[in-house]
Simulated scan of single mutants.
Amino acid sequence: VMPSEAEHDVLAYMAFDESLRSKLHSTNPLERVNKEVKRRTNVVGIFPNREAAIWLVGALMLEQNDEWAVSRRYTPVEKLTAMCNDTDAATMIAAQ
């Protein structure tokens, strides 16, 4: 894909509310989760089998999901809901 062809995809986050833009193009939450997975797997050292590793990482993902859903919402649900209900904004985002 040529850079000029990908321009709309790369800049799609610009159609969202200004307060959400920095969060949409940032990978900070993903990097934080990956760091926590690495930290916890290093504590264990060697896993007895693949299922044990999947169980530990799965438990961490469930814990992270619960935390984000309840206490540390990265993106306010109200703003996303308002954007989804705004037909002009939804059309503009889909057209990008």
Rank of each mutant, 00 (worst) to 15 (best):
I54M: 11
M83L: 06
V57Q: 03
V43T: 07
T41N: 01
L60A: 09
A52W: 02
S19I: 13
S22F: 10
S19K: 09
L60D: 06
L11N: 13
W55S: 15
Q96P: 02
G45A: 02
C84Q: 06
M61G: 04
L24D: 00
D17F: 09
R39D: 00
N49H: 11
A6L: 15
K79Q: 13
Y13G: 07
M61Y: 10
D66Q: 04
V10I: 12
E7S: 06
S22Q: 12
T27K: 03
I93D: 09
F16C: 07
K35E: 05
P48V: 07
F16Y: 13
E67F: 08
G45C: 02
V77W: 02
R50E: 10
N65I: 03
M83V: 03
P3K: 08
A15G: 14
L60C: 05
L80F: 04
E31H: 10
D66T: 04
V1N: 11
I46C: 11
V77P: 00
D86I: 00
E18I: 14
T87Q: 14
R21W: 01
F47Y: 13
V57E: 01
L62S: 03
L11W: 15
L11P: 15
T41C: 10
I93C: 06
M14D: 01
A69M: 07
L62M: 05
L24T: 08
V43N: 07
N28T: 05
N34T: 04
N65T: 13
A52Q: 09
T41E: 05
T91Q: 14
S19H: 06
V44A: 04
M83D: 12
R32E: 12
G45D: 08
M92W: 13
T91D: 08
A59S: 15
M61D: 02
V33F: 14
Q64L: 02
A94T: 07
M2A: 14
A89K: 12
K79V: 04
A95Y: 05
V70P: 03
V10L: 08
A59T: 09
T91H: 08
A69F: 02
